[in-house]
């Protein structure tokens, strides 16, 4: 039984089918990259897994337990943490408070402790702050942890978002184009971080356009085109797959 198993997923909006019968599995400590041209249904499939969209058909299971139809917060609670293609931070709140969102489920605070500021409340606040800073460190954040996230440079915002996902202690980390907009140094930092995360047994599912990064990191690559999976295998195999080359470079006959 796989950690994450997606079977025959189908999602359509009105008459437009964006995901059409996609299946894949993910094992612990595995890095699976999902690639494909724009509009191939990568992010839509992602959103089906995380509960943002409810697929019309197919199933998503975590440890064999079906999760389709659960609200995103429950799915996150089962160990799936994600980042977004276009950063989704809480802009007016500090970097550390952003990361504390990931710790929300693990933090226990009774209403009375909060209202009376009991030692238990103070301890819990201190601990969550320490942990938030720890995860900011892990993600390579270098700025002021108290600075509002919305005012941070782009690269730092990405690290805050990663720290927030990691703070949740996920078993599956879902990254939607994590390298987009990063410079060379930031990109190698990301590669190191993803490897480190994987070495702790976390599975990584990532959508990425940067083929260099995909070939460097991924154990397996799934290729989507127009809502269908057209290939799935180790990076070396994918690179020479005819269907993949056609999808990316265009069908020579059709173009003629």
């Amino acid at each position: 039984m796989s950690l994450l198993s997606v079977r025959d997923l189908r999602l359509s909006f009105g008459g437009l089918t964006v995901v059409n019968g996609v299946s894949f599995d993910l094992e612990p400590a595995e890095i699976l990259a999902v690639i494909g041209p724009n509009g191939a249904g990568k992010t839509s499939a992602f959103n089906c897994v995380t509960g943002v969209y409810r697929p019309q058909r197919g199933s998503v299971t975590v440890d064999g337990r079906p999760i389709t139809g659960l609200p995103p917060s429950r799915i996150a609670g089962l160990g799936l943490a994600r980042t977004f293609q276009n950063l989704r931070l809480f802009p007016a709140m500090s970097a550390e408070d952003n990361v504390r969102a990931g710790l929300h489920r693990a933090t226990r605070q009774a209403l009375w402790d909060v209202l009376l500021h009991t030692p238990r409340y103070r301890r819990s606040e201190r601990e969550s702050l320490e942990q938030a800073r720890h995860w900011l460190d892990v993600a390579g954040y270098e700025g002021d942890p108290g600075q509002p996230a919305g005012t941070l440079p782009y690269g730092e915002q990405r690290r805050v978002e990663l720290a927030r996902a990691l703070a949740a202690g996920p078993r599956v980390l879902l990254l939607d184009e994590p390298a987009a907009g990063l410079n060379h140094a930031e990109r190698s930092g990301l590669v190191r971080l993803i490897r480190e995360v994987r070495s702790t047994g976390v599975a990584v599912l990532m959508i990425e356009h940067d083929m260099g990064l995909v070939l460097e990191l991924a154990d397996r690559v799934a290729v989507l085109d127009r809502g269908r999976k057209i290939a799935d295998g180790p990076p070396d195999e994918i690179r020479t797959d005819q269907a993949v080359i056609d999808a990316y470079l265009g069908d020579a006959d059709a173009a003629a």
Binding site: P71, P72, S73, A76, R82, F90, P91, A92, D97, R105
Partner: peptide, 17 residues
């Protein structure tokens, strides 16, 4: 405040909005 700032992101982070 997470809900105020971005409800979808809060939900995705595991908070039952």
């Amino acid at each position: 405040q997470y809900v105020r700032e971005d409800e979808d992101a809060a939900e995705a982070t595991g908070i039952s909005t």
